[in-house]
Write a protein that binds this DNA or RNA. Structure first.
Length: 420
RNA sequence: GCGGGCGUCGCCAAGAGGUUAAGGCAGUGGCUUGUGGCGCCACUAUUCGGGGGUUCGAGUCCCCUCGCUCGCCCCA
């Protein structure tokens, strides 16, 4: 029979990797706790319409990357490709917004049918933050600061914050027609992808990687010039707040988000160490989304971090020795029926007292069991053989001190000693 | 969806048309059924991702296919 394999673009995280994930998750949780941000957990599966309406029909994510299928009740369902739409849906559905502004975070798997690549999987994981009901420019800065500090706490270097303003909906519509009109006049100089996007998502042409397209864009009308004075003023305030927070940033006038719901502030945090998929964190303001999904008009800002990319960086930055699964305190060696019968409850009692205990279940020769005790890095070995079993005692051996004398103790005395 | 690279044991890895496919790590058993970290011995790929072809002969050459990987696209 052919061995079964995990689906393309999905990966198993083996015991050697999970400590890095746990570290990243622990740091994130702590940052959120300090900032008074509550966790929300939403289903992985949603009605397809949520994403079609929330993210935008014209986006690549919705157009060609979703895992969509009909369930047994003929409903069109989709494995979530991102988290924001679900969080907003849940907030509306449960009336969270009528209880005042919400600071929420979420984490978990997302699904996008794409060609796997460094830092990109079909099932990937994000940690995200959503501030619902916050319009002040300081909320943009605070959201960014939380992401920035989280990354700093992980000890990651080589990060850069890029910032832009997409302006209001009106600004964008106005700019969009200006840009399209201008580009139509130079259509033949555009790369094929960009020609395509001229009709589907023209703003995305701005961050095309094609050098000739970029050269052409140097003469094109800019988004910044199309912003209304109020939009510019708002962008200025966000920048001032970041400056006060001493968070370095660079303005990238070509930075555009791929999801339709973003407006005004858009940002990315990128790493120079990640290859082509350099964005570790991306986000921005989405004041229109809640209303678009049927909720009350609500200002909002948020971001998402890519866990795979973060872990890639964390693995390079964190000392693996510090993350090794803790070695057991006690390794229990036993041989012979009576001894084995004593060893089993001894291990459990020690665990109940908070000790990390590994019980050797092999019934192998003492030499083998000792070898394993040593290998696993345990501090102590408890040895029960036939002689000990008949006297109901246990030999306690300090594995770090080969010369030290072994102690013969009752199980109770042994536990007391280990806890001392 | 489109390009490039790669595919030999659980992991790393020799092998460049010619008898039985090195080695290291890990694993298992033994030397040693009562004491470990060292050492020694043994075992662990009828087979080189899969299929077809060329050849007297293929892991080594060709074709197809699958998988992995990097990039484009897209995004976190």
């Amino acid at each position: 029979m052919e061995p079964l394999q995990s689906l393309r673009g999905t990966v198993d995280l083996l015991p050697a990797q999970t400590p890095f994930w746990q570290r990243v998750e622990a740091v994130a949780r702590e940052q959120f706790r300090r900032a008074g941000i509550a966790e929300i957990r939403t289903p992985l599966l949603e009605v397809t319409e949520l994403f079609a309406r929330g993210i935008g029909e014209g986006t690549d994510v919705v157009g060609k990357e979703m895992y969509t299928f009909l369930d047994r009740g003929e409903r069109s369902c989709t494995l979530r490709p991102e988290g924001t739409a679900s969080v907003v849906r849940a907030a509306i559905q449960h009336g969270l917004l009528s209880q005042g502004p919400q600071r929420l975070w979420y984490g978990g798997p997302m699904f996008r049918y794409e060609r796997p690549q460094a830092g990109r999987q079909r099932q990937f994981h994000q940690i995200g933050l959503e501030f619902l009901g916050f319009a002040d420019p300081r909320s943009d800065a605070e959201a960014i600061a939380i992401a920035w500090d989280l990354l700093a706490e992980l000890g990651l270097g080589g990060l850069a914050l890029e910032l832009n303003s997409l302006g209001s909906t009106d600004d964008r519509l106005r700019y969009r027609s200006e840009l399209v009109a201008w580009l139509e006049g130079h259509r033949q100089r555009l790369d094929p992808d960009s020609q395509q996007r001229l009709s589907t998502n023209p703003l995305r042409i701005l961050d095309s990687k094609n050098p000739e397209t970029q050269a052409l864009l140097a003469g094109a009308p800019t988004l910044a010039a199309a912003l209304a004075p109020e939009s510019l003023e708002r962008f200025e305030q966000v920048q001032q707040a970041l400056t006060r927070l001493e968070i370095p940033y660079v303005i990238n006038p070509r930075l555009v988000r791929g999801l339709d719901y973003y407006g005004h502030t858009a940002f990315e945090i990128t790493s120079s160490q990640l290859g082509a998929q350099a964005t570790v964190c991306g986000g921005g303001r989405y004041d229109g989304l809640v209303g678009q999904l049927g909720g009350p008009a609500t200002a909002a800002v948020g971001w998402a971090l890519g866990m795979e990319r973060l872990v890639l960086l964390a693995q390079a930055a964190v000392d693996p020795a510090a993350l090794q699964a803790a070695a057991p305190d006690l390794y229990v060696i036993s041989r012979g029926a009576e001894a084995e019968a004593l060893a089993l409850p001894l291990a459990r009692r020690a665990r109940a007292l908070g000790l990390a205990v590994e019980l050797d279940l092999t019934a192998a020769a003492f030499g083998k069991q000792f070898k394993r005790a040593d290998r696993c890095g345990a501090r102590w070995a408890a040895v029960i053989g036939e002689a000990e079993a008949s006297e109901a005692v246990v030999v306690l051996k300090d594995l770090r001190d080969p010369q030290g004398a072994d102690l013969r103790l009752s199980p109770e005395a042994l536990l007391v000693r280990l806890l001392a």
